[in-house]
Design a protein around this nucleic acid. Structure first.
Length: 844
RNA sequence: GCCCCUGUGGCGGAAUUGGUAGACGCGCUCGACUCAAAAUCGAGUUCCGCAAGGAGUGCCCGUUCGACUCGGGCCAGGGGCACCA
């Protein structure tokens, strides 16, 4: 028997056997209970990175464990293959996005296979292929016909030099990433999905997702952002271009008497009219449109306003006029695009009022006595009673909200309403490498769906990337088609779908992939919802919300009777690594660094180096570790073991050389203990070892519990403890059993070693096909317990007592302790607290 | 700006409902084996102290017989923010 486990041979050997036997093919018509384990599918960016390895290792352990527990497991893999990086590669490297993407997929598939994941490769899919996106186009048309798709104007980041639309990520400090030109906001006609129709049910549905992290549920709740408040109309003192009033929304109608100005968005129709007669205002509005469209860019921008000279009338007092401003912080997309400002109780309004010299009137105070307490640098947003508010005076603020809404409804100038922060999902992208939107624009008929028998609308491959912008627009023939309805002159939609659409239903396609439709309903329903979904927390909002929406939309149109796509969700942490910088600011890779005389230097130059933070692996910081050479050197199992060890899976994992070395050593230690030369003879023996039996059975139970709750680091620690105990135990029949059971426990984590050792021990069949070992409940119960003895809450001694011993017995034993006698010094304790089987606390 | 998360030895971290803080791993120290090294095995390793003992889970305050755990107030670091996926 080999004295060392050789992963180079073993990995490939067992991977081939699993593949030949179809070990991990999921059968749709199995009689076993079904379990769907899914990790977020990767974007084929080039090569597998450590984050993928960690993600897929976690899912793999769970999938393999569930198979051992008797489930028919669906554990598929595919490619989120459309997206911007392929177009960037096309421009930079002069390769076609399709060729680049497909080559990446081939590379990454081979890399994943080397890690020995228990995946059903027969269900592999790539979103960039017509046999996937064609079905997506059909689903898009289903939603279109159900009235869930519409068209409206929406803003994009526009690069005026490159004449192209920019993604937020391409806007750096308000400038285009290539041209460096200041970015403008520009309106385009775009397609939207009516996710807001589902706002209420998407919010309510969160309550039932009890196997999701609270953090993610909260993030989604905030994102959906339900607010209740008052919608009312401000009358303009003088009509503006025919308008005599406009709508305002507020969540704080109780503060209406603290109003000192009204503000509308730069995009508000009234602002547009006013700007027509006022050059300075026009310039101000243009200025507001500079910069990016992200929330962060908008909200950190300096709060600026422009006094239009117009005014509005206070709803409760016809003689009270409020100045009307155009303000850059008022969002046209939220509420009505108009607000009233109450500086005393809103920080942003306060800063605005101070800047433009507007009055600040307190209308909420902690008590009536503080009615005239001045507002300093900070707005008062706490609870309290209404003051300086006429008929509202003395009411608690929350009652004031109800009272103002009541009066507004009674007098007919406003009504209580619910407003959502959630906006409809804009799915148009002015890009090539995405799913073509299956719509034809006819001059006479308007937008017309592509007839079903003409799907898929295939993305043409003969395009060029020599100029910026969407190549589909420039393609000579592709967009020119007759109208399907009238046969007249028409043009294909040249925008493509947001790649989040692709990832909103791939998990359904994995469950069922017929040729003639997106999925077979009954088969899909037999697997769904996904039992455990695992991926990065960066998808906590958008991807997960869109997938939830898409699933509910399919239910609404009668295609699938599933409400929530993901029953269990787990968000794993990132893989990090140390960073280094040369004194001139260059990032240096950790292997370009040496330590000389206690200081860090750059190996090549000998110049000093500054150690940076341990950060997410990224090319720009030169701290990435390519998994492939690591697998070459240590084998798949050591890499997998390291990914599971130490760090809790939801937190970041710091890559280290020492860590992978440690994992490698443990893999070898497992081999020596079980099948390695000389190993067996040391543990074969007769007779029972009850202490070892107890340890084994407790370990089986706790490893199972820890895998089920995805606490892999704890499962790993359990196994180390067991290994330590087994090694110290004398030879016995119990020890022989423990070694074999231990192989079953590690089989989901280090499957190649487990198979190799299983075979070396002469056991039949694959370890992958074995059942998880049973636990004898009798062995989980201890007959003796260690009890802590405290005096005044401080630990002074421990005693060993029979499990379940009477309070009196334990108290007596504690009082008999030498240390306790010395500390109590003859005095009787005032009070004795006994926690059965845990501790005794003597209060002196 | 808004929202969220995290903070425990030299390091990663463990600690069912408040009940023996530091399991397990890494590193380090000493020892065994070896001509030597690697590998392996054994012992030790929160801090102060020879010891008895004392202190200790980012900081301050509180609740409790008892707080890493609960409440209040801070500090520090990190993440997300709708066209990156």
């Amino acid at each position: 028997m080999a004295s060392r486990f050789n992963p180079l041979k073993a990995d490939a050997h067992w991977q081939k056997i699993w593949e030949e036997r179809g070990s991990f093919h999921a059968s749709d018509d199995s009689v076993k209970p079904k379990s769907y384990v899914l990790e977020m599918f990767p974007y084929p960016s080039g090569r597998i990175h450590m984050g993928h390895v960690r993600n897929y290792t976690m899912g793999d352990v769970l999938a393999r464990y569930r198979r051992m527990k008797g489930f028919e497991v669906l554990h598929p893999m595919g490619w989120d293959a459309f997206g911007m990086p392929a177009e960037n590669a096309a421009m930079e490297k002069k390769v076609h996005p399709g060729a680049w993407t497909r080559a990446n997929i081939d590379t990454m598939r081979a890399q994943l296979k080397r890690l020995g994941f228990a995946l059903d490769w027969s269900r592999e899919l790539a979103t960039c292929e017509p046999d996937y996106y064609g079905h997506e186009q059909a689903l898009f048309l289903d939603l279109f016909e159900a009235g869930l798709v519409y068209r409206k104007q929406s803003e994009v980041n526009w690069d005026p030099v490159d004449m192209t639309v920019l993604a937020n990520e391409q806007v750096i400090d308000g400038r285009g990433w290539r041209s460096g030109a200041p970015v403008e906001r520009r309106k385009l006609n775009q397609w939207f999905l009516k996710i807001t129709d589902f706002a209420e049910e998407l919010l309510d549905g969160l309550d039932e997702l009890d196997q999701w992290p609270d953090k993610v549920r909260l993030m989604q709740e905030n994102w959906i952002g339900k607010s209740q408040g008052l919608k009312f109309r401000f009358q303009l003192s003088e009509p503006v271009g025919g308008a005599t009033d406009f709508e305002v929304f507020t969540t704080r109608p109780d503060t209406i008497f603290g109003a000192s100005f009204a503000a509308i968005s730069p995009d508000h129709p009234i602002a547009t009219v006013l700007a027509g007669k006022n050059e300075a205002l026009d310039a101000f509005i243009k200025d507001c449109k500079a910069g990016g469209t992200t929330a962060a860019a908008l909200e950190t921008a300096e709060k600026k306003g422009f006094d239009t000279g117009a005014s509005v009338i206070h709803p409760f007092d016809a003689g009270w006029k409020l100045p009307l401003y155009v303000a850059n912080f008022v969002l046209m997309d939220y509420g009505s695009g108009a607000v009233f400002g109450c500086p005393a109780h809103d920080q942003r309004d306060l800063e605005f009022a101070r800047k433009y010299g507007l009055p600040v009137t307190r209308v909420v105070a902690p008590s009536v006595d503080e009615a005239d307490a001045p507002i300093g640098e900070e707005a008062y947003t706490g609870p309290g009673l209404l003051v300086n508010s006429r008929f509202l005076d003395g009411l608690p603020a929350e009652e004031g909200v109800r009272e103002v809404i009541h009066r507004a409804e009674q007098d007919g100038w406003g009504q209580g309403t619910t407003v959502w922060r959630l906006r409809d999902w804009g799915v148009s992208r002015q890009r090539y490498w995405g799913t073509p939107i299956p719509i034809i624009h006819c001059e006479a008929c308007g937008p017309v769906p592509v007839p079903r028998d003409q799907l898929p609308v295939v993305l043409p491959e003969d395009v060029t990337f020599d100029t910026p912008g969407n190549p589909l627009d420039r393609h000579p023939g592709w967009s020119q088609v007759p109208c399907p309805t009238c046969g007249g002159v028409a043009r294909r939609e040249t925008d493509t779908l947001d790649t989040f659409v692709d990832s909103s239903w791939y998990f359904i396609r994995f469950a069922s992939q017929p040729d003639d439709g997106p999925f077979d309903r009954a088969v899909a329903e037999s697997w769904l919802p996904v039992g455990q979904y695992i991926g990065g927390v960066e998808h906590a909002i958008l991807h997960l919300l869109y997938a939830r929406f898409w699933t509910r939309a399919l239910k609404r149109i009668g295609r699938l009777d599933i409400e929530e796509p993901f029953k269990g969700l787990f968000t794993q942490g990132m893989v990090t690594h140390e960073t280094y910088r040369a004194t001139d600011g260059r990032w240096l890779s950790p292997d370009e660094i040496d330590e000389r005389d206690g200081t860090l230097v750059e190996t090549a130059s000998g110049k000093p180096v500054e150690a940076g933070r341990v950060e997410k692996m990224s090319k720009s910081k030169k701290n990435t570790i390519d998994p492939e050479p690591i697998v070459d050197q240590y084998g798949a199992d050591a890499v997998r073991w390291f990914m599971l060890s130490d760090s809790p899976p939801e937190r970041d994992l710091a890559w280290s050389e020492a860590g992978i070395e440690g994992a490698w050593r443990f893999v070898q230690r497992l081999w020596r203990m079980s099948a390695g030369a000389g190993g067996r003879s040391t543990w074969l023996g007769d007779g029972a070892d009850e202490a070892l039996d107890r340890k084994l059975h407790r370990t089986i139970a706790s490893v199972a519990a820890n895998i089920e709750s995805l606490a892999f680091n704890k499962a790993v620690a359990n196994i180390y403890e067991l290994a330590n105990t087994v090694e110290k135990a004398p030879a016995s029949a119990s020890r022989a059993k423990a070694v074999e059971a231990m192989l079953l426990l590690v089989a989901p984590m280090v499957p190649h070693l487990a198979e190799e050792a299983w075979a070396a021990l002469g056991r039949e069949g694959l370890i992958a096909d074995q059942s998880w070992p049973d636990v004898d409940p009798a062995l989980l119960v201890e007959d003796e317990v260690t009890i802590a003895v405290q005096v005044n809450g401080k630990l002074r001694d421990t005693i060993i007592a029979p499990k379940g011993a009477a309070r009196e017995t334990v108290e007596e034993m504690a009082l008999a302790s030498e240390k306790v006698v010395r500390i109590l010094d003859g005095k009787a304790p005032r009070k004795v607290i006994v926690v059965p089987d845990r501790l005794v606390n003597l209060v002196a």
